[in-house]
């Protein structure tokens, strides 16, 4: 697994979480800029999904199994977009909190992905 990409995704996810947390603190719903941020993080997760699948196709094996690795990649990719849609349905500060929680979950998934790949 590409470690720099994993780290970049985790950091971006935490920044997104902090940003949306700040919006929630100021009692604001998610705005266009937040959605651009979510898009950036989602693209990183998508790149990671592609890179992961390419590495599997080249014959590399994750330490804890291919099935688990791919499920985590898919989960990581779905994570932020899902919270984005939820924040569209909940136009209050709580929508922002939900996106922030999505960012934290994605960061945790990155740590797990790193473990699953085996460093």
């Amino acid at each position: 697994m590409l470690v720099p990409l994993t780290v970049a995704t985790a950091v971006a996810a935490l920044l997104l979480a902090a940003w949306c947390g700040w919006a929630a603190y100021r009692d604001q719903p998610t705005k266009d800029w937040h959605f651009i941020g979510m898009a950036v993080v989602s693209v990183l997760a998508l790149v990671q999904l592609v890179v992961g699948i390419v590495q599997l196709a080249r014959g590399d094996k994750p330490e804890q199994g291919t099935t688990i690795f791919v499920s985590y990649l898919l989960g990581a990719f779905a994570c932020v977009p899902v919270t984005g849609f939820m924040s569209l349905a909940e136009r209050t500060r709580w929508g922002s909190v939900t996106v922030a929680a999505g960012g934290v979950v994605l960061a945790v998934l990155q740590v797990r992905l790193y473990d699953i790949w085996g460093g």
Binding site: I68, S71, M86, E90, A101, G102
Partner: peptide, 26 residues
């Protein structure tokens, strides 16, 4: 039940569903 904080709860519970169910299936 999903207005306000309920939305956050749905998200966290959703994560736990995916986590627990997929884990136990595997």
């Amino acid at each position: 039940l999903i207005s306000g904080p309920g939305m956050l709860l749905v998200w966290l519970y959703g994560v736990m569903v995916v986590g627990a169910v997929s884990r136990s299936i595997v």
